[in-house]
């Protein structure tokens, strides 16, 4: 029954005088990958930031409407709790520079002051790194700082860090925009594997990426949700003219 994990209802967002998100309603499917695409400035990053309330860092942001996680309105929850349930990976890899790889993975626990036993930590680190496809590469350097890792490895470390908190939803905000093609391919493979365990919502400016890894795709244009459906349908027989134009222009 419960196919929808997260529902957005009549969401409006404005920053100062600018309306960034206009009356968006949509629901995300559990353990699927949903891609949100659109030209830059269409509000896709703002939309995912609203989902774990990271938009609150930007001053003068006004949000109306609701977002519910398993029928619980996240705007009535503590933002801190929301963020523990809905993890986020950012455009640029941002591991904590002063922490070892090991500590980076369990940073969410360390920083929140959540006590774990040694063995709990070890298993958590290993399983999270394994899920992020990084375990084999770093298992001999767990207690070194992450500075020597490549950009792609650092981004996977950030994914492991988010996974370690055992979130129900993982938000990826253009996770490969700062990476080289090889690392990008690696992360895309990883995303397909991760949907076994977690619901993924991914912002991308790359149409090819959306078509390769997502089950559902939403197309945003100027703050409006133009079209939302299975990736297959949206890419083959889009309903809306704007979607078609966007796709064809991008594909040449």
């Amino acid at each position: 029954m419960n196919k929808h994990i997260l529902e957005i209802d009549r969401l409006n967002v404005s920053i100062g005088a600018d309306k960034i998100i206009k009356d968006i309603s949509m629901a995300f499917f559990r353990k699927k990958v949903t891609a949100i695409m659109g030209p830059s400035g269409c509000g896709k990053t703002t939309l995912v930031r609203c989902i774990n309330r990271m938009h609150e860092l930007i001053p003068n942001t006004v949000v109306t409407g609701s977002i519910t996680l398993y029928r619980k309105n996240i705007y009535e929850m503590n933002p801190i709790m929301v963020r523990r349930e809905i993890g986020m990976v950012f455009q640029r890899p941002n591991p904590f520079p002063t922490m070892s790889i090991y500590d980076n993975v369990i940073a969410g626990y360390l920083l929140n002051g959540i006590k774990l036993t040694r063995s709990e930590k070890d298993t958590l680190v290993e399983s999270s790194l394994a899920k992020a496809g990084l375990w084999n590469e770093v298992k001999d350097a767990l207690h070194r700082r992450g500075a020597f890792l490549s950009g792609g490895q650092q981004q996977r470390l950030c994914i492991a860090r988010a996974l370690a908190m055992k979130p129900r939803v993982l938000l990826l905000d253009e996770p490969t925009s700062a990476l080289d093609p090889k690392s990008t391919a690696h992360i895309e493979d990883l995303i397909s594997e991760l949907k076994e365990t977690v619901t993924i919502i991914m912002v991308t400016h790359n149409i090819g990426q959306a078509s390769r890894v997502s089950d559902f795709t939403a197309f945003l244009y100027l703050g409006e949700l133009v079209e939302y459906g299975t990736t297959e349908k949206l890419f083959t027989v889009p309903d809306d003219k704007r979607t078609e134009e966007y796709l064809s222009r991008k594909f040449g």
Binding site: N78, I80, M81, R84, E85, Y109, N112, G113, I114, K166
Partner: peptide, 15 residues
């Protein structure tokens, strides 16, 4: 739900 077991009191954080 594993979240509940390490869920510190909401109110404390706000405070």
């Amino acid at each position: 739900r594993k979240t509940s077991q390490y869920n510190p009191e909401d109110r404390n954080i706000r405070l």
